[in-house]
């Protein structure tokens, strides 16, 4: 999995792009189910309990343990996780617009 890889949810409309690749291979999940590479229709798998907090468009999610960072390019009902660990939203730095 490298930076730029696109992943889509198996349970909802969410799609993400890998902004920073993990140091070692990990399983990226949405709604508790593995995400699939590339574009395609939204999946129909079941949303697992506890993984239904949702993924928000435009937010960046990070997993400090593996170094993985994702950008949510389409929102959905499932929460993002890595090997079962829920990902946290990375704080947006507030920089003044310069162009």
């Amino acid at each position: 999995m490298k930076a730029g890889t696109r992943l889509r949810s198996g349970v909802c409309t969410a799609t993400v792009v890998v902004v920073r690749a993990p140091a070692s291979p990990v399983s990226v999940e949405c709604g508790g189910q593995p995400m699939a590479e590339g574009a395609g229709p939204a999946g129909e798998a079941e949303l697992a309990p506890g993984y239904d907090g949702g993924a928000l468009l435009g937010k960046r999610y990070e997993d400090p343990a593996s170094g993985l960072e994702l950008l949510c390019t389409k929102g959905g009902a499932g929460s993002l996780s890595v090997d079962g660990r829920l990902l946290s939203v990375k704080d947006a730095k507030s920089l003044p617009a310069s162009d």
């Binding site: 930076a3 792009v17 902004v19 468009l57 435009g58 390019t73 389409k74 929102g75």
Partner: peptide, 12 residues
């Protein structure tokens, strides 16, 4: 990740 992603996200 190319420039189109920025526009698609805004359009979404």
């Amino acid at each position: 990740m190319d420039l189109t992603m920025l526009l698609e996200m805004a359009a979404e």
